[in-house]
Amino acid sequence: MSARSISWFRFSSPATFYHLAGKMVPWFSAIAVILIGVGLYMSLFVAPTDYKQGEGYRIIFVHVPAAWMSMFIYVVMALWSGIGLVFNTRLSAMMAQALAPTGAMFTFLALWTGALWGKPMWGTWWVWDARLTSELILLFLYIGFIALQGAIDDNRRADRAGAILALVGVVNVPIIYYSVTWWNTLHQGASVSISKGSSMGEVMLITMLIMTFGFWAYAIAVSLSRVRSIILERDRETTWVSELPEMQVQ
């Protein structure tokens, strides 16, 4: 009896989650739009001009939250992967898969804004700074995860192989960060420590937090709607999908 209820749970949970996610997406999208809107307004108009770095420094209000999110999402992805491996739940693997592109996007955003910021500050687009380099390697890790899942046709294998890779990656991330820092201090390259340049004012901190929460809501909204697509794609043969109202209109 218990075995029966577990398998029932397993197969219906994407179905129930599909509807739950459908209700959550608009809310998180709205929160994301409001918070990012407020955050951008504050970072462009409210936050004071930095006396050392001028107006160009304002890009950190995008750069720093994006960098935070890129690392945070990788950890969350690994967490879902671990849950999926241990409990053999389909949904958690789908969550990990849905998070990866968003994480890669934030990593790319962090790199890009870092380069944009570096050009006026140091006169080069790229500095082999410990943080930027780690961020670059993180992007490689995301790309590896996405490429591996894309190369495997069988969903179950893709889920579990991706999960193992994400877990191996998350063990490696601190080691990579540490070794890159070591490497950087040894070579005494230029340091692009963005938040160190000037002491952070209260307004700046609040703005950054607002932006972070906005990005957070965005990540949730986007990955939830991506999970919905993944669920539909994988369960397209099942009756509950064919009975969905959105599947009737064609």
Binding site: I137, F140, G144, I164, V168, N172, I176, V180
Partner: peptide, 23 residues
């Protein structure tokens, strides 16, 4: 081990493993 039997396995291995080997 992750890429056994996949198309373009060799390139994929490098893509997965090289970042992990950086330290």
């Amino acid at each position: 081990a992750l890429t056994i039997g996949l198309r373009g396995g060799g390139v994929l291995i490098s893509l997965l493993v090289l970042p992990l080997c950086i330290p």
